[in-house]
Amino acid sequence: MDTPAYVSLKDVVFSRSDRRIFDGVTLDIPRGKITAIMGPSGTGKTTLLRLIGGQLRPDSGRVEVDGQQVPELKRKQLYALREKMGMLFQSGALFTDLSVFENVAFPLRVHTSLPEDMIRDIVLMKLEAVGLRGARRLMPSELSGGMTRRVALARSIALDPELIMYDEPFAGQDPIAMGVLVKLIRDLNRSMGLTSVLVSHDVPESLSICHYACIIADGKVIGEGTPEELRQHPSRQVQQFLQGQPDGPVPFHYPATDPAEDYGLSGGVS
């Protein structure tokens, strides 16, 4: 890899109650690039983002963001680091009691002591960037799903972060909204030099914008590289995921006992 890593995970092990979610994940996210992390549903992609954001601690292994060991940070340092991160949640997670304008202004009001007119300018600029300057007086309940995500995006970039993490930005969006989001993610990366991490299972959209991608399954990274490299990847599991085949190394059936037993056909009757 030619660019230095902004985020790097090394042998990360994480389990929730009895289930092991990550079993030695090693992953580097290059600075200033868009990295897509893909994988079947339920492989803990969101968990990965929470590990990077320090909301969860790994059982073992290292999580490094911008040279700092996230799990070892003190509360205060962690909160300072988070000011450099933006995260777009799957649901948008707008504060429902605040208007669109106040939602975007929220991080500014909390973390800076800028005068009101400056906050106004910044907020309008960010809203303009996502094309929703005209919607600033609306309440979150009045927005469509795609607009909610765009407002949330404006909010996550309000403090000009260095890293932005998108949690399933395309899930449940119509093609137009999806196109808008793809364009926004690409533009933001290009114009602001943001390091972007994209967690998704929408293969074509993700591969179309990312510079670098990796696929996680069964708690491990099963394939990584540029989109082109991935398409040529020899692993059957990677190919199954990329092409969306229903059966393959990842079985169609959830692990079960012999069907004969369930239907009561065992025991010599056959």
Binding site: Q55, Y79, A80, L81, R82, M87, A93, L94, P107, S156
Partner: peptide, 14 residues
């Protein structure tokens, strides 16, 4: 449930 608390945490607000 709507991840507002999480997102607040990620914005560096406790």
């Amino acid at each position: 449930a709507t991840e507002q608390l999480s997102s607040m945490e990620m914005m560096g607000v406790d």
